[in-house]
């Protein structure tokens, strides 16, 4: 309990610090934007990886592609079709979510390392799609004059508003994920991660849950995609290439693929489902003292077939 409170205090302190960074001038404008804002939007992209890995047991290498779909659609609609910013932004996010759902449906029965490969392939397809189809991008990419006024318009010269926008959205994403993992959907998802066979026999539609979870991940990633366009005022296929995919994954891994989830979900999971999923594995590969369930969740798909 005390540890939890210390954690909460620490989190609150960090949040206050982040809010106060611009007025205190502790960072130069460059660092505020290139370190602060960049970390925030990459963090949102990584959060979608972590959400899927921690709660669905799905390690995705396709999140960069999905935020690319959002970013490209937004930029295309503004630059090539001449839409206003806000309709284009929502259309971009909507497209990314629909795309995520489609990928989720294709991958609904694919688990573990195969899921990793499939999403990697999706990432490469999206990259080549935007590289090759000149009508939507081509290698040159798309350049915007400015972002919406709400986030500061010319975000390169005036980065402070975008920083706050990214900060607020990061906080919202965090709260949203915390909320979602406590809903029946979130709990069912964790159950599926740990023992899909049991969940299926309990009457849950395992595959649909996976697909929907992936769409939710896509929704989170699409926010990052829009922010990245605000941030760079351009997007090109190199924004979503394999290096970028690895960067997003690396952020998620360094942060802990199974870490960013609410304490309550850990508790609810810890008592019931996890020992089940560990038992088969720990019997084979020896004991794992004190490691709880974190390390087995990612390798559990071995039993998933």
């Amino acid at each position: 309990m005390t540890v939890a409170w210390i954690n909460r205090g620490l989190a609150a302190a960090i949040l206050v610090f982040l809010v106060l960074v611009p007025p205190l001038h502790v960072l130069s404008e460059f660092n505020l934007s290139q370190v602060g804002t960049r970390s925030l939007w990459l963090g949102i992209a990584a959060a979608s990886v972590v959400f899927l890995a921690a709660n669905g047991g799905m390690v995705s290498l396709g999140q960069a592609a999905i935020y690319g779909v959002a970013g490209f659609t937004y930029a295309d609609l503004v630059v090539k079709v001449g839409w206003g910013h806000w309709p284009a932004i929502f259309a971009g996010m909507g497209t990314a979510i629909a795309f995520g759902l489609a990928v989720g449906l294709v991958a609904r029965r694919t688990t573990g390392i195969y899921f990793l490969m499939l999403t990697l392939a999706v990432g490469v397809i999206v990259y080549y799609f935007y590289l090759q189809v000149e009508q939507v991008s081509g290698q040159t990419g798309l350049h915007l004059d400015r972002a919406p006024a709400l986030v500061g318009g010319d975000t390169i010269s005036h980065p402070t508003r975008l920083y706050y926008a990214a900060l607020i959205l990061s906080a919202l994403v965090y709260v949203f994920i915390r909320y979602l993992v406590r809903t029946p959907f979130g709990i069912a998802l964790q159950g599926i991660r740990d023992d899909p066979v049991r969940m299926a026999s309990l009457g849950y539609n395992v595959e649909l849950h996976r697909a929907v979870a992936f769409a939710v991940g896509a929704a989170i990633a699409s926010i990052a995609g829009i922010l990245s366009v605000f941030f760079n005022l351009q997007i090109s296929p190199s924004s979503i290439d394999i290096n970028q995919t690895i960067i997003v994954l690396a952020i998620a891994v360094v942060g802990g693929l199974t870490r960013l989830r609410s304490s309550s979900s850990t508790r609810s999971r810890g008592r019931h489902t996890c020992p089940e999923s560990c038992s088969g594995r720990s019997a084979r590969s020896g004991t794992r003292p004190g490691s709880g369930c974190c390390s087995c969740s990612s390798s559990s798909p071995r039993r998933a077939g």
Partner: peptide, 19 residues
Amino acid sequence: YSILLTFLLLVFVLSVRPF
């Protein structure tokens, strides 16, 4: 768009035969 085909093949096979 020939380069896209190989990856579409992959996605198609995996969606029908996940392994």
